[in-house]
Each structure stands twice: as C-alpha cells, then as structure tokens.
C-alpha cells in the first residue's frame, strides 16, 4: 500500500538503547514487552512518551456498558463472552458478510503502535496497542465509490453488560468516522495490549483506535462495521450534540462546555501529578491536519 504510515515510536525509543538492553539482560526471564513497559516508566524519551503500566491501562477505563465508575469495567467486564466473535461488515461494500474474528486476523499482520490516548474528560495515557490498519480490512471487503462514512457498533448484550440495563446512553453504543479518517494509516483496529490479548475492559476482542480524537471515538468490542453515504449517528453526539461533536478531534482551543480542554493530566503521576498542555490533534497534527484543511474546527468540533 502506498503511503503507509511508518511508526516512528518503537519500543527502543521509550528508553535509551543501552538502558533497554541492560534491563533486558538483567531481567531476561521477564517477557520483553512487559519489560520495556517497566523500563519506559523509568526513563521517557524526549516526547515524554513512556507507556502507562498494564495496571493503569486495564484498571482505569471508561466503558459505560460495564458501569460509570472508572474501575467498574475492570470489575465487571470479565462476564463478557468474546469467543466466538464475528464482525458483520455491510453497507456500501463489495463483499458484505459476517466475518469471523479469526478470518479477519488471518488477512492482516499485527504490529505494535505506541499511541497517546486523550480522554474527553481531560486525562490521558500512552498505550502500547497491538493491531492492524483499519484500511487493510476495508480494502479487503471492497469499499464502493459511493461510501463516504464508516459506522461502528459495539456488542449489545445486557445480560453480560450490566451498564446496558441502565439508560446511561441509548444502547447499543455507536460511533463513526469519515471515510478518509477511517482509511488513514494511523487508524487501527486493536486486538492487543503489551503484546497480550486485549482484556475485556479495554474493548476485547477487537476495537477501534483513532489516536488524534477523544477516546470515546475509539469504539470498543466492535460487532458491526457499515459503510454509508451519509454521516452516521454517534452515541455521545446524539446524547449531547453541543458537548460532543461528530469529529471530536483533540483540540486544546475548543473547550468542552463544562470543562477546559487546554490541559490534561497524565494518568500515573500520583497525588501531585501536574496538568500538561494538550496538543492539537493529540500530537498527531503533522499526520492528520491535512484531513481538515479549510474546515472551521471551532464549528465542526
């Protein structure tokens, strides 16, 4: 594929090569991926991109299908059945159908992507995802020329997802992207974390990750992908259109009506962790700003 995005953030970027190797030798028994996570906390690179720990990433989640508390998903998500799992791909595609997860994964090669994650609630993490570019899957099913948007839907199974028994949002959770956003090489479907399978609370077995948008755009536990001509409905936008736009690009200059988006707190800094400035497009402006050329991002937030 032409113009494929190259991940400039490698595991060895997280810490100096020497320290990385030293620790590698010292802790040879520990898995290399877990190791680099530990090393990462000890010494971040100039970007400050040290991944959050496994515990931080898996115990502090917004996944309202399992409750609104940050640790609710960690407590409750274990009940969700993720095997068997299939994704129904339809709409304006050449080869619609219900694709088994194993079938989807057989056609792609998984890679590591160390991404910033910025929640709309003004906290952030750095997550070492494992996944593949959404474009690979979309190209495989054949996107028809009339398609302009991609709609996504989360599993709806109230008997396993206690939050879906309360009207917190209009279930099932739905999200959407413009086709060019979906085809962008930064946009991935993730199936893992730290080299392991995704835990349920992080959106197992397959979830979207769009690192330049607020976290709620990165829909979890996806069961349906539909190519459409019109802009699809998205859950938070439907709930409060003045607070959550369809685009929801990370933007320090456009505040949420109820709180500032100018700064964020990195999870994991403890009780005295300062706020740090939020970056335009969550630090991915170089890669994605072109998608929005000529758009008034204050109106189309």
């Amino acid at each position: 594929m032409a113009g494929r995005w190259r991940n400039t953030l490698k595991w060895s970027d997280v810490t100096s090569e020497g320290a990385y190797l030293d620790r590698r030798q010292a802790m040879a028994a520990v898995g290399a991926l877990a190791l680099s996570g530990i090393a990462g906390r000890a010494r971040a690179n100039e970007d400050g991109l040290a991944p959050n720990t496994w515990d931080e990433i898996t115990r502090y989640n917004n996944f309202y299908e399992f409750g609104t508390g940050k640790e609710d998903p960690w407590h409750n998500a274990g009940r969700m059945t993720t095997d068997p799992w299939a994704v129904e791909i339809g709409g304006l595609v050449d080869r619609p159908g219900t694709y088994d997860l194993a079938d989807i994964l057989s056609g792609v090669s998984l890679e590591e992507r160390l991404y910033r994650l910025r929640c709309v609630e003004a906290w952030s993490m750095v997550v070492p995802w494992v996944g593949f570019e959404l474009a690979d899957l979309l190209n495989r099913v054949g996107v028809q020329p009339s398609a302009k948007y991609v709609a996504f839907q989360t599993l709806h199974r109230p008997e396993e997802m206690p939050g879906q028994r309360s009207p917190i949002l209009d279930w099932p959770y739905v999200e959407g992207l413009r086709l060019d956003e979906a085809m962008h090489p930064l946009t991935i479907l993730a199936t893992g974390l730290y080299g392991k399978d995704l835990p349920n609370q992080n959106g197992a077995p397959i979830r979207l990750v769009v690192p330049w948008k607020y976290g709620f755009k990165s829909i979890k536990s996806v069961v349906r992908i539909t190519l459409t001509a019109d802009q699809p409905l998205t859950s938070w936008n439907a709930y409060a259109p003045n607070e959550y736009g369809f685009y929801s690009n990370v933007n320090p200059d456009v505040d949420h009506p109820r709180w500032s988006q100018a700064t964020e707190r990195r999870i994991g800094g403890g009780l005295f962790s300062p706020r740090v400035p939020t970056q335009m497009f969550n630090g991915y402006a170089e890669e994605v700003a072109g998608l929005y050329a000529g758009m008034d991002l204050k109106k189309l937030f």
Binding site: D55, E56, R59, Y60, K70, E71, W123, R265, I267, G268, G270, L271, S273
Partner: peptide, 15 residues
C-alpha cells in the same frame, strides 16, 4: 488512601 494507591491510578480526581 490517595497517597498509597487505594483510590486507583488517578487519585486526585478520586480524592
């Protein structure tokens, strides 16, 4: 609790 991790990984908001 906040100082010793008992309030989770984001102790400031929790406190």
């Amino acid at each position: 609790l906040a100082a010793t991790g008992g309030l989770g990984v984001e102790p400031i908001a929790a406190l």
